[in-house]
Simulated scan of single mutants.
Amino acid sequence: MMKQDATIYLVLNPSSAADEDVREVVSVLRDAGYTVCPRPTWEKGDGARAVQEAAADKADLVVACGGDGTLHEVANALMALDEAQRPAMAGLPYGTGNDFLTALGVDPKGGAVQLASWLGGEPWPVDVGRINDRHFINMATAGVGATVTAETSRGFKDVAGSLAYFVKAIPAAFDMPVHRLQARAPGLEWEGEAAFIFVGNGPQSGGGWNFCPAAEVDDGLLDLVIVPAMGLTEMVRQMRELVNQPEATDCHDIVYRQVKEAHLRFEEEVPLNLDGESFPGQEFAFSVQPGAIAFLGPRPSRVTAEGEKQKKREDEG
């Protein structure tokens, strides 16, 4: 439980900074005895600077108020701190996709009032992915999805929301770029033409699509999914099955592995999307840092594959 006199920093993207509900929650929390420090972000690096200020102030909690990109910036800044200096983290959804928070069970329409209810709970450990010299909290994607993200302007995302992804993705799919990929991970050696690559700490991306449906943010693993080049109709069929399967198993031609580390090498530089932000490159080393961040908020309830089988046996019996 967050102590009554805790210091809370709010890292606010422009949408959340303009929200009257946020201002009201700040007042309510202050009246309850909390020290609340709002920090709007207007320029690149503002979020990281706010986290550094929070650490220097010995803050108890940093709340990323924005989309996956805001969470990405806050998580990277937290990981740059010594573990003993690291405040707990929470997130309020004020972005276009909000994939990480939605997968945890945060209500995308619940606004800032959700924060007050979380303060009575305990932070829980969330894994953080690492790729080369950066961290990510939700998902890394390459291929068509990353190309679409890189080519979708911030203004268009603000207007169209998660629909922006599909407005751009539909024409891209008919002229689908493929990339020659060498992928290595424990128990996996794969080489070929890949259309989509997903490395998930969380399960969903692209505004709610479970491209890594078995991913759990606290299992100490990353979910690696490789979608080989194939005809568009067949790809749609296989990916439709992929996003609905509960287990980390191959789906027809689609490769699915849960790993602690992976190495991807492309023949040319490709756009890579990390939590909604574009970072181009050619060679990527992935790893996971289990339980690296204490996260305050709802913890997703899960039914294991074995539990589902047992329930099915009981229903049939």
Rank of each mutant, 00 (worst) to 15 (best):
K309D: 14
V36I: 00
R237S: 14
L242V: 09
G192R: 02
V288C: 00
M139D: 11
I197C: 08
A56T: 03
P271I: 01
P123T: 13
Q85A: 08
T141L: 11
A229W: 09
K309H: 14
E283W: 02
A90G: 09
G317W: 12
L232Q: 15
L10I: 01
T141D: 15
V11E: 06
G200P: 09
P203S: 14
R39A: 10
L10R: 04
T70C: 06
D315T: 15
Q4K: 08
G121M: 05
M89L: 11
P123N: 07
P300W: 10
T233F: 04
V255C: 06
L61D: 10
D127P: 13
C212E: 09
V167M: 06
Q289P: 07
E151L: 03
G202R: 03
A229P: 13
T70H: 01
P298F: 09
S205T: 05
A56D: 15
R299F: 06
G291H: 03
A172R: 13
R49Q: 15
D175V: 08
I131L: 14
W118G: 15
K260A: 04
D82I: 11
M139S: 08
K3E: 10
E53H: 04
A195Q: 10
P203W: 04
G231S: 04
R265T: 12
A54R: 00
Y165R: 13
R39C: 12
M89G: 06
A185C: 01
Y9V: 02
G202T: 00
Q204K: 08
A305W: 05
E306T: 09
G145P: 15
H72N: 11
E73V: 01
S27T: 06
Q204A: 10
M139Q: 11
V128E: 10
L12E: 05
R86C: 08
Y94M: 01
E83I: 12
H135G: 07
A140W: 02
H179I: 13
P246W: 07
G69Y: 06
A194T: 14
L188E: 12
H263K: 14
G45H: 10
V25W: 02
E268H: 05
Q85K: 08
E24Y: 05
S153H: 03
G33R: 09
L242Q: 10
D82F: 02
M230R: 15
V225G: 06
P298Q: 14
A146G: 11
W209L: 07
L61F: 01
M89A: 07
V62A: 00
V217Q: 02
E20V: 09
K58Q: 12
E241M: 06
L101M: 09
Y94N: 02
P123G: 04
V63Y: 02
